[in-house]
Amino acid sequence: MTHHDGEDSPEPMASVRLRRAARGPEGAVRVLALHGLAGSVSSWAPYERLALDEVELWDGELPWGSAGDPGWSLRDDPADHVERALDAVPGGVDLLIVHSFTAGPALEALVRRAHSGGPRAVVVIAPFHRRRTDDFSWDDATYYLGGFHRILEEGLRIGGGERLPAEVRAAMALRVRDRVGPYGWQQFFGAYLRSPFLDVASLRLPVLVVAGSEDFAAPPDDARALAAALPDGRFRLFDDCGHFAMAEQPQRFADAVHELLRETFPAAPATPSPSDVHPYVPELT
């Protein structure tokens, strides 16, 4: 399902799709899930199978996805695309789920509309987020520039690439990297560098931040710091998990989402609360 801002509008359109209708008799909770850089809507297949009957699940095809237009990085503000995706869901989004790179633009978009309505709750998976400008160094730029393909290769592996020889998977990751291009990488790292300037204190809604203990791309301390800075942030660390919690540990992820749904939307049933809740650490702010 695609919604346009207008036939003559020069602005890019947002494409969203109803992935699964709610199965309950009434009281559907509209959930929109947005993939990360070079990701795809297939990222949400594991959660789709585990979602509560009351969940009406939507996903969005963003221009920085694996099948998107590489030209987006030359002209577009990623936060605009997130806003358009939010506005494209009929009836509005109750819960927004975002992964990896998209977390930064999504938070920027939510800050913009902090006082004008939006989702009632958010789940952020593996965010790239730091609280102070001096948390960054030249070593960070070197790490992410030289190792960008490793993140892409990990995504291919989690998405089913274990069936492929390692050398084939590595070659595919390099092709994806080249398709993203230097300007796409600059959009990624630029959003990361802007994260200390985000007014996350203005986000007066529950935000669940999920991290994997073995994530070599987005350090778990980034997620912990973000949760600490949010007025209603909560942090969950999944042990033995990397950058793709929703695919690597789908049941654990679904349980965490449903616990948030039970709290935010009392009419929705939920599974028992998982035991891996970690309090956020205030001193990281």
Rank of each mutant, 00 (worst) to 15 (best):
P70W: 00
W64I: 04
L208A: 09
A218Q: 02
V122D: 06
V31D: 07
V122C: 04
D255H: 01
L96I: 05
A268D: 01
F235M: 03
V31Y: 01
L205G: 02
G104S: 14
I151Q: 12
R131V: 15
L34T: 14
W58R: 10
G68D: 04
V281K: 02
Y144P: 05
Y143T: 12
V89T: 00
E7G: 13
G6N: 11
P196T: 15
R23W: 01
L203T: 11
P231D: 12
S9L: 05
R194A: 15
E263L: 02
L110H: 12
P12I: 13
F216W: 14
R84N: 07
A268G: 03
Y280K: 09
A88I: 03
F148V: 05
A254D: 07
D221C: 08
L62S: 02
D222W: 12
L95K: 06
M13V: 14
D239R: 00
R113C: 02
D178C: 05
A28R: 15
L174C: 10
R131G: 14
H115S: 15
A38R: 08
F101S: 07
A22W: 00
L74F: 14
P10C: 04
S202D: 05
D77W: 10
D134H: 03
R20K: 13
Q249V: 08
A211R: 08
G118W: 03
G190Q: 12
R130Q: 06
E153L: 10
D255G: 03
E54P: 08
R120N: 10
L230W: 11
P220V: 08
S100V: 14
D94R: 07
G147Y: 01
R262T: 02
F101W: 01
